[in-house]
Design a binder for these strands. Sequence first.
RNA 1: GCGGGAGUGGCGGAAUGGCAGACGCACCAGACUUAGGAUCUGGCGGGCAACCGUGGGGGUUCAAGUCCCUUCUCCCGCACCA
Length: 822
Amino acid sequence: MELKYDFKNIEPKWQKKWAESGIYEVDETSDKEKYYLLEMFPYPSGKLHMGHVRNYSIGDVIARYQAMQGFNVLHPMGWDSFGLPAENAAIKNKVPPADWTLSNIDNMREQLQTMGISYDWTREVATCKPDYYKWTQWLFLQFYKNGLAYKKKAYVNWCPSCNTVLANEQVVEGACERCGAVVEKKDLEQWFLKITDYAQRLLDDLELLPGWPEKVKTMQQNWIGRSEGAEINFTTESGEVLPVFTTRHDTVFGVTYMVLAPEHPMVAKLVKGTPYEAEVQAFIKKVQQLSNIDRTSTELEKEGVFIGAYAINPLTEDKVPIWITNYVLMDYGTGAVMGVPAHDQRDFDFVKKYGLPVKEVISPSQKSSGEVLTAAFEEPGYMVNSGSFSGLFSSPEGKEKVAEFIEAKGFGKKVINYRLRDWLISRQRYWGAPIPIIYCPVCGQVPVPDADLPVVLPTDVEFLPTGESPLKTSPTFGKVKCPVCGADATRDMDTMDTFMCSSWYFLRFCDAHNADAPWSKEKTDYWLGVDQYIGGVEHAILHLMYARFFTKVMHDLGLVHVSEPFTNLLTQGMVLKEGRKMSKSLGNVVSPEEIIKKYGADTARMFILFAAPPERDLEWSDDSVEGCYRFLNRVWRIVNSVCELSPKTGDSMDAAAKELHRITHATIKKVGDDISLRFNFNTAISSIMELVNAMYDYKEKAGEVVNTGVLLTAAENLILLLAPFAPHIAEELWQLLGKEGSVHTMSWPSFDEAALVKDEVDIVVQVNGKNRGHVIVASNLTAKDMEALVLAHENLAKWTGGAKINKIFAIPGRLVNIVVAK
RNA sequence: GCGGGAGUGGCGGAAUGGCAGACGCACCAGACUUAGGAUCUGGCGGGCAACCGUGGGGGUUCAAGUCCCUUCUCCCGCACCA
């Protein structure tokens, strides 16, 4: 008999059985050690794409492998379900965002279930449901009550297409990360979370994460952008203080002008009523008309105007002109910069254009050459023309001395500046968690009392593309009594950035249905941290930094015991077709649904794991999918043919049987190592393929005298090794072999060291590093024995051509290299 | 410009300093077949060969895809950050 590999029946059958028996459901009472495996939860767009398939296939291999290793594996799934697409769909199709989202979730859950992933579905969460966002609001209030959430008016990034403000992290090259529209600046009053309070810890604690890719840690480092320097207080003639931030305080004696950002509040003050006012305002207007992209482009020609005022350098008491330029940014440092053309190329270019003086204060030699500089000298060197500091080496000694001097004289202070800004979380949109703040004419800002949470999204709203939050169209939502004094009050009409929701979902999974708290400490104590987190590298900064920030705040509030959420991080590469990211506009999208329909989930999973190591980009190949399908068919046939054999006693262990036995054990070792040490699923699958090839070979060769015991053992281990990759076929074949229980509750097989040893090995003979021949020797031969054997070999003269042997190297089990005179 | 990663057959990709190209795809030949886009067997870097081959050039070593120096190309992230 040769029954067909009928994945269409097998896969749904086992999915149903697993769900009924609840084999993937876990709790905290197990005496096994815990293992928390998490894949980044998806936005429910409605359709699974190949990136999801890859993410969840990788996760499932690890989850199933760790379970077979004896861990109590938490492997949950949920939905990052607030966000703009739902609202845009509402505007377009007049469907309420909730309906659209919930039906998408149902669709995607169904698709996900056809993949046969070992999720504990009892823990499913959706961030858009009141029982979840109640706690997002509650957490916001914890930030608020601890001084970590505040409202301020600021120039913020505004996306004119999404009609909302954006966090700095959501602006990519001056454009909206989501829709690509050019971001504008708007002066608005918005809520911020004080992530800058945690800048140093977010930076330092990267060292606690050896299990994270260097690349991600570097990206976060760059984003935090720590730089050590000094703030030096220049003063205007009228006595106003103008602090500048610099990392080159060793060059403070070389300041020949000062620059302010056009938006700097002092600018208007200084030019008011002066003859410069009109020209300055015209320049400011010109700069502000530039888009963010142009504004921050390095291509932009440096321009500026003198504003008619002067600043006094506290160290030299020199009076230097104050300019405004298009290359100084208001939101970094103090928005004011000292101009040192001799030692900063930008400043140098600027003064060349406007004819300002250059003063050399750092020189490669002890004395200033006196020559005219043709470019800025930016390296460290000896301080010259620098008063009592002249002669010192600029860095670190000179810097340190200048800083001490400045602090002693009260001219300024050492400071550490970060590029990281506070996190703007207000969004002028409907489909998010409402910000639980009430504005009372008497009491001012009042947090919504815990008992009144959640602040539920109203449904009596209109979705019009007006640019106003739809919440404002609700006749009921905004009207509220002040919880303190009872006066008529209004609600905050904004919702929270959806990254707030995804910053704590991994905590909720530990205790998904807790109605009294976001989670119980006992449960997070048991499950945290996440032992392995898996997702796309596109979240390297945004989500991963926010989640780290949240965890640290929760830690400081005593709500969780860990200070880092994700112990190990695996960032998977993209799925490409024809070398490019799959996208609708390129028309190169391969639908997981169709692949699963045509070949089954096991084939889809095998292909996506086999085609490339997880961190690398993966090129989709229909042919290669076919190859994986063929492989599973081969597995199906060989196990079917083997299970018909009945084990006999007294089978002889001949060389062929011994070899299959050895390969079986070598494969157990290799697959285990590849999964656990390296995440090299592609090579793990290769070696499983080799085992299958070896089984066919053996059956072919052995014919009638087949050793059924060895063959059955090979088949049994084959299924165990295949189980994390192709769980349905493994389960079916496990049953076919007559085994009790689910293969997914079995222990990972162990290998016998002794079985790995070959009796004889084929070693290569090299002469001066070039291959000359082969010898079959006993595998336990020492280097010395090997040398002797080769030197006495009948082919020796043929190999060496009779040349004089100078030296000989032998590597046991591998090769012998004879070094001869040339 | 700064930071990170990668360059290996026709393709995806393998190789603790020790036989480069495992495994798979594609391709070629054969077998079985009424037929095969099923399955099985064999072949498959280049060259007639000696030999030559891991982006290029140097080096270390008995031995280099792997280590060191240098250079080129591509991808990703950040980018007037003072």
